[in-house]
Nucleic acid binder design. Structure first.
Lengths: 298, 298
DNA sequence: CCATCTCATACCCCCAAAGCATCAATCAGG
DNA sequence: CCTGATTGATGCTTTGGGGGTATGAGATGG
């Protein structure tokens, strides 16, 4: 059976008004129209459905069983209809919706949870979708719209805006029992001859370059032995005694068993930022940036 | 915010078509209209909601986050809308809905469960609402529309139709150990001097009159000692030795402990019928009558 | 039997919405 | 860089659906 694309939700509202008043004249008035066209509307609905919805004998109006059912269903449809309109506005205003937040464990330790918590308090109806990604993929995903925002290292291209979330610096981690583990502080020269574990430049260039530069500035040529892609793996390999690593200091706050953190003399520092597309179609992003700004201050 | 009683489900259909094709021309064609008015429709929706739903740059069409949300919501609304129309037709055709079936335990023993089972197999989407009621209330409830059908004793007024379901007859029940309990069969004369338990004439006149007439035809004046309203109570009082009773034979198929059934000589018989209003607004009633007719035959 | 109330019908009218023609922007290909 | 094709937006014209007024018809109560 091919439906009634003639009938629409306005007709439904008319019917609901009639069903609630059981009076054509008053129902018509409620719909801001006169009674005759209103009667035609109802007749039109019944005609199109091929179903009698109201029993009327010019003195009493009552609902047929089909009419009772249609009333209940119509109320649901209209409520959902209005909710759809309201939701569209809420999403457009950034009060509701989804926000895909990318982050990289290389940078996100500590900052992402705090950011997420604050944001969720401010916008409880925005569902945050967290996606861990490698740093070099983040820019492209932001430009392509696969991410709405991301927490990663500065700096970034002109198509992207960034807000500083925190300033982090490199720290040394070594296996427990390692010759350097007992030191309070070490310099670049002390690192000569030790095997390094670090993400490759194709994954985390900011970190990788900082590590290399730190060595080279002291005339030490760094020797990388393993190059895993994930921050977690780096710490794990260190824990297993396979080498040492220079990692963001925030990572050291939750170290695995068997790994010791040692401060670096004159450590390289870098910004951890919230990056967003210069023009974002998602209205939920702006308040996230605002939260990030406040986070930096307080 | 005062809504958009301008916008209706037809506009929603247009938007969904656009969101699915991402092409104004083709979406318009799907809606059987030309492109210019279609574009105006979409613009109208956005204007009324105050929300941009699609991003268009004269070469590409894409959904905004609000548009994506509105698409999902709209699909739900339209599906529910169509379901409401379909349900109205199903209810009107008697394939779906509710049917309030009244019955009285005085008459319903055995017949109602069978009737209900057969009907539910034929019309699984009709919800049967069973209501036990006293016999004298049934006629009025049927005429008032509080019941769609009822199982009770014949006969009935002209406003009601009835279909015979079964023929039942009176049987004697006495407490175990009662002088009459040992008899195979008893006549009206044997009942003289025994205290009777029966529902009052204001509750079940058919039964009550049959009982009185049975006694009086043999010159015995019945003496009623208790007059409970419910069939269940009658049996219980007999079980407790407070008297004897004449009850429909079908009741005897599931007697409580301590109650013995004894056949009557020339027992009064009466019809148990399915009663329906002569004109019923509920289309689910007709198939019930049909089931009742078949039940009588098979 | 009349007055009244209420829903249906008849008729008219108008503007919202559809169509047509056209413009503007974008892109592909030579 | 130019041209043609594609596609969405805009202006103008037309028409039919939908609304209004007047009136009819059936029911009810005094």
């Amino acid at each position: 059976m091919l439906w009634g694309y003639e009938m629409d939700s306005r007709h439904m509202r008319h019917f609901v008004a009639l069903a609630e008043t059981l009076h054509f004249g008053r129902a018509a008035a409620r719909m801001n129209m006169s009674q005759p066209p209103f009667s035609r509307q109802i007749a039109g609905i019944e005609n199109e459905l091929g179903v009698k919805l109201v029993e009327r004998n010019s003195r009493n109006v009552s609902l047929t069983p089909a009419g009772k059912r249609f009333l209940e269903d119509s109320r649901g449809v209209l409520a959902q209809f209005d909710a759809a309109c309201r939701d569209a506005q809420l999403v457009a205003s950034g009060m509701k919706g989804e926000l895909r937040l990318g982050f990289t464990m290389h940078a996100a330790h500590g900052t992402v949870p705090k950011l997420v918590r604050r944001y969720s308090e401010a916008r409880p109806d925005v569902r945050l979708i967290l996606e861990e990604t490698i740093p070099t993929a983040i820019d492209e995903m932001l430009v392509d719209g696969k991410l709405d925002a991301a927490v990663t290292f500065a700096p970034h291209g002109v198509q992207l805006n960034s807000v500083s979330l925190a300033r982090d610096r490199l720290s040394l981690i070594v296996p427990a029992g390692h010759p350097l583990a007992a030191r309070k502080i070490v310099g670049a020269a002390d690192l000569a001859g030790h095997s390094l574990i670090a993400a490759p430049a194709t994954v985390a260039p900011t970190l990788r370059n900082a590590i290399s530069d730190y060595h080279l500035a002291a005339g030490v040529v760094p020797s990388f032995i393993y190059e895993p892609r994930l921050q977690h793996t780096i710490v794990q390999l260190v824990a297993e005694g396979l080498g040492i690593a220079l990692v963001p200091e925030t990572v050291c706050s939750t170290l695995a068993e068997g790994v010791v953190a040692v401060s670096l003399r004159d450590p390289p520092a870098f910004d951890i930022v919230l990056v967003t597309p210069a023009v974002s179609s998602n209205p939920a992003v702006a308040p996230l940036v605002e939260v990030a700004r406040r986070l930096r201050r307080g």
